[in-house]
Design a protein around this nucleic acid. Structure first.
Lengths: 246, 246
DNA sequence: CGCAATTCTTGATCTGAGTCAATGCACCAG
DNA sequence: CTGGTGCATTGACTCAGATCAAGAATTGCG
């Protein structure tokens, strides 16, 4: 489990850190959650749960990236959720995992045993309130994603994905997201293809095209530099009112 | 407002009828909800709210069909939600509508003023609990839809949509969904195209193809007969374990 | 009833993305 | 340094679905 040395302080104001459930929680809940909390790490590529498995925990992503995906028997797969640090995994009140969950990169989860977590939820309305908020956010993300999958061209899809990741990185690092953003791509070309409903060859070609056209710069295969975020935003095909509306 | 003569009885066990929020509500809530309840009707094609509009109500669909959709400036649009009778519209705690909501067919909503509804929610944990349940269901539906949009062929998309509607119809009418299902398509070809990320021509062609291959029968343009649900299920490309897992 | 307006179907052609296949590039182990 | 293994890139070709363009069927209305 590597050099995990988390404690309250590092976790922020609440054991379910990173804005996940916290914000309004008080000390009692902190201590109560602490009692049912444990950390877990996974290697890149390692499965966390398979669709249909019983899940006896809920969790918050501490570091790394995980994906939710659905597979068809013939091998076609579609990613339906991407969990970055601060995102929440699991569904209180539901036993079975509806998707395959896989660690895309090395990953650390902050887990809570599900039953006690649910019991706490029942007693603390603002926690359920927060869970509803988070679920609505996920729903919004899924629906933005549906527009991407259904109506955007391959180039727009890639631009949209890069913009989404760039925004997330910026919001976590509290960087002013003016221009000159850069980040490490947490996904392989194949994972990006699964995210966007493309093939990995098309992903590779479109990334090359965006590079050729000066929209992005690559350092190595994974490090992306975005010299002009507004330019990237235009390539997404979305409303051009730009800005980070998180 | 046509011949609306709803009352508690007709609405089922709860004013937010059709399993929407009800199930576990008690008489106090019934009466409380009644005080803030009103019905509204819309003509086919009529907009209900535009993306960004302030929404001062939440509602449950009584009859008819409504769609949630997202539009790009250049006219491309993607439907991101389809509301059939018993579905819930609106998001407690959020002011602005995130999508365009349009009445696809003639539509009746059972509305509740948002503020009092939210206040009631805060006081009655099991109602928020139920809201969370419903939101998770919507999320699951959105993610199933993402697989359809990202990875299925046009033929599989049409079959999937027909299967989804057939299932819904069956579950509402409490029909045994063995074989010989039939229903009126609540969507135009164009709306189906917006749902599935296709063009209306492709929708038309694939429906014709399914008819030619005996998977479905058409009576007129809108009435669909499904002689063998399992056969349709196979055409969807999904797990062939068939059955209605609602 | 007849005429216009929708909505749907079908055909011909074009094209963006998929498929198949080769090659390139890092990084690691022996 | 050398062969191997896992990503990534690039090219040549194909094809599913989009686009453009007529018509046909339904519906509605004066």
């Amino acid at each position: 489990m590597s050099d995990m040395t988390f404690n309250h302080k590092e976790c922020g104001s609440c054991p379910i850190r990173h804005r996940a459930v916290c914000a309004r929680c008080d000390v009692d809940e902190l201590e109560e959650l602490d009692a049912i909390k444990y950390y877990r790490s996974y290697e890149a590529g390692q499965p966390i749960v398979w669709s249909g498995d019983r899940m006896d925990f809920v969790a918050s992503v501490v570091t790394g990236v995980a994906s939710l995906s659905q597979a068809m028997e013939d091998g076609r797969t579609q990613m339906v959720g991407l969990l970055l640090p601060s995102d929440f995994l699991g569904r209180p009140g539901r036993d079975a995992a509806p998707y395959d969950v896989v660690a895309v990169s090395n990953l650390t989860l902050c887990c809570f045993r599900r039953k006690p977590f649910e019991q706490m939820m029942l007693r603390t309305p603002h926690v359920s309130q927060r869970l509803l908020e988070m679920t609505l956010d996920e729903l919004d993300a899924a629906r933005e994603w549906m527009l991407i999958l259904g109506r955007k061209t391959a180039r727009e899809k890639i631009a949209s994905l890069l913009a989404i990741i760039a925004r997330r990185e910026a919001s976590l690092e509290l960087t002013t997201a003016g221009d000159g953003m850069d980040f490490e791509l947490p996904l392989t070309r194949e994972a990006m293809a699964d995210y966007l409903g493309l093939t990995l060859e098309t992903v590779s070609r479109q990334i090359s095209a965006l590079k050729r056209d000066g929209v992005i710069t690559l350092e190595g295969k994974r490090k992306v530099v975005i010299p002009d975020y507004d330019r990237l935003q235009i390539e997404t095909g979305d409303d051009t009112d730009g800005g980070l509306m998180i």
